[in-house]
Design a protein around this nucleic acid. Structure first.
Length: 518
RNA sequence: GCUCCCGUGGUGUAGUCCGGACAAGCAUAUUGGCCUUUCGAGUCAAGGAUCCCGGGUUCAAAUCCCGGCGGGAGCACCA
């Protein structure tokens, strides 16, 4: 029964179904998936989220997850999205000066609305102020023990000798950190927690240390720098962040930071931990990316092998696609591995209606076709579903019944001795003689080809095509020829090369495209 | 080792908090049919999960409890 119905044409199926209207269910509208509501939203307090990258590398798919959640929630609750550059470790993770703008650029491309922007390296005085306050309260102390010694003490749940010195003594040490009496590595400010806490990572964690390497933005203006947990805790409070969305690798940091909130009598924000996002194809590791770019393994931050946002953008992935995917994954603590197929499918949904169709012949072979009528015409829609967009029209006049066309080598090889159709143009029989391909005209009608089960091939004609290449996901180049009409497109247009795949126009002179997906 | 999180078809996800019409929904991938002058596009359909395992509570468990197994994160003077 099912087989029978399936064998009918769409028209016939529609006709048949009209006879049984009661069987037609109400069409369920595909509802747009949304994020689950935020917990702990207060009536008179503005929801504020923050994205806090270290500008030591470009944004990638992994960063996109918290970005999209922060932005979506900020918009959902009429709140604010805060961008905060966490660039306080010039020694270990040196910021790259051009990344500050590049990150903003990527966020704008993602259509993120940045309501507030801060740079931590501008805020050192603020951190100092709170450091002093905590020291005065006896909530923090300056430890001058060698780190080895301190480690062995805290692993044994024993306080170090510095811990119980008076606040005045601590303040003097603090001055000595600032004025250069202590050298790098000699002294560190620690937050007093529970020295017997079951998790050793919590015990008297370090808050500020001496860092002497020149900072790319503020140079050598400061020598005492906050560590992540300190600056983050202070800033989240001062910036009135209500909801922290972050990777679950930060879980223990929340516990650490709460100690400051308790000392200061501040209310700790709501936390949403999310899992790590991997992608099947595309490198996400910042250190690998940076190394590869610096040593020339990759062509740049946007090398198609990378999982950076700028690489995906170059490959024609749309910002809406990234947003859709993240919302689909959702703010959950599980580690998801996105398959490239999922990304491609989501992108295709967005791009397909927009993408006009053109022919690109890779591995092109020019063949002579014989036995032709005087004139052949082809009228190919730019988009089969939108005839109003126009057509690509070709008129081919044969000379003594012959003309030349260009077809992919693979298609020729696979169709030797068979009837094949050049889409929209004609049917021909491909033959191979002495290693050379030739073809004989057979017929014009589409119907003939369909009835005989011929393969449909795309093609270009020699004097109406141009040399071009497509950069593939593995960074190799696929060389071929495109219709000359393609020279009139614009950079960033997404088009479909029929039977080849969706591509993004990257350059017009020369003609370069980036492969997105099929 | 210690602290913590998670485990639904190949992949991603819904449902898990507040057990019941869930012999488990959706998307993608796969396979097949159809298709207006085009396709690897579109469209229609099919197959595919004993809801990690074992036990318990209950009239009833993917959902609650216990144990096991498996995966992940953190344990830096990084973020």
């Amino acid at each position: 029964m099912v087989t029978e119905v399936n064998s009918w044409s769409n028209e016939k199926q529609k006709e048949e179904i009209k006879k049984w209207p009661e069987l037609v269910e109400i069409k369920k509208v595909e509802e747009k998936k949304t994020l689950p509501p935020l917990k702990n939203v207060k009536k008179d307090v503005m929801v504020k989220t923050r994205f806090a990258p270290n500008p030591d590398g470009p944004l990638h798919m992994g960063s996109a997850e918290p970005i999209i959640f922060c932005d979506e929630y900020a918009k959902m609750y009429d709140g604010h999205f805060i961008l905060r550059f966490e660039d306080t470790s010039a020694d270990v993770k040196p910021p790259i000066i051009e990344m500050y703008d590049k990150i903003i650029n990527d966020l704008e491309w993602l259509r993120v609305k940045i309501d507030e922007k801060y740079i931590q390296s501008d805020r050192l005085e603020i951190y100092y102020k709170y450091a002093v306050e905590l020291i005065k309260k006896g909530a923090a102390y300056i430890c001058i023990c060698p780190s080895e010694l301190f480690k062995s003490l805290y692993m044994a749940k024993k306080p170090c000798p510095c811990r119980n010195l008076s606040p005045n003594e601590q303040l003097k040490r603090w001055e000595d950190m600032l004025n250069g009496t202590y050298k790098k590595g000699d002294a560190v400010v620690r937050i007093k927690t529970n020295i017997e806490h079951p998790n050793p990572a919590i015990r008297d964690w370090p808050a500020l240390r001496i860092s002497t390497r020149s900072h790319p933005r503020v140079k050598r203006k400061y020598r005492v720098w906050p560590l992540y947990n300190f600056s983050c805790a202070i800033d989240d409070h001062l910036m009135k962040v209500t909801h922290i969305i972050r990777g679950k690798e930060h879980e223990v940091n929340g516990t650490r930071q709460k100690w400051i909130y308790d000392y200061m009598n501040w209310e700790y924000p709501e936390i949403i931990n999310i899992g790590r996002l991997g992608i099947e194809a595309g490198i996400l590791s910042k250190s690998k990316i940076r190394a590869g770019v610096e040593n020339g393994t990759f062509t740049g931050w946007d090398d198609p092998r990378l999982g950076t946002l700028c690489a995906l953008r170059k490959r024609g992935i749309q910002p809406e696609t990234i947003r859709d995917i993240m919302i689909q994954v959702g703010p959950k603590p599980i580690n998801a591995t996105l398959s490239w197929g999922n990304i491609a499918a989501a992108n295709k949904k967005i791009v397909e209606p927009k993408a006009n169709r053109y022919f690109f012949v890779n591995n092109p072979v020019e063949i002579k076709v014989t036995g032709l009528p005087n004139i052949l015409t082809a009228k190919l829609a730019l988009h089969p579903d939108h005839p109003d967009r126009g057509y690509r029209e070709y008129i081919i006049k044969s000379i003594k019944g012959e003309t030349n066309v260009i077809v992919p080598r693979k298609d020729l090889e696979e169709n030797i001795g068979k009837l094949a159709r050049l889409m929209g143009l004609m049917n021909l029989i491909i033959e191979q003689e002495e290693g050379k391909f030739i073809a004989k005209f057979n017929s014009k009608e589409h119907q003939v080809a369909r009835e005989k089960g011929a393969n449909f091939l795309h093609w270009v004609i020699p004097d109406k095509s141009e040399e071009a290449y497509v950069v593939m996901p593995d960074a190799t180049k696929s060389f071929g020829r495109v219709e000359s009409l393609c020279t009139k497109l614009n950079v960033d247009n997404i088009i479909q090369f029929e039977r080849f795949g969706f591509v993004r126009v990257d350059s017009l002179t020369p003609l370069i495209y980036y492969y997105a997906h099929n």
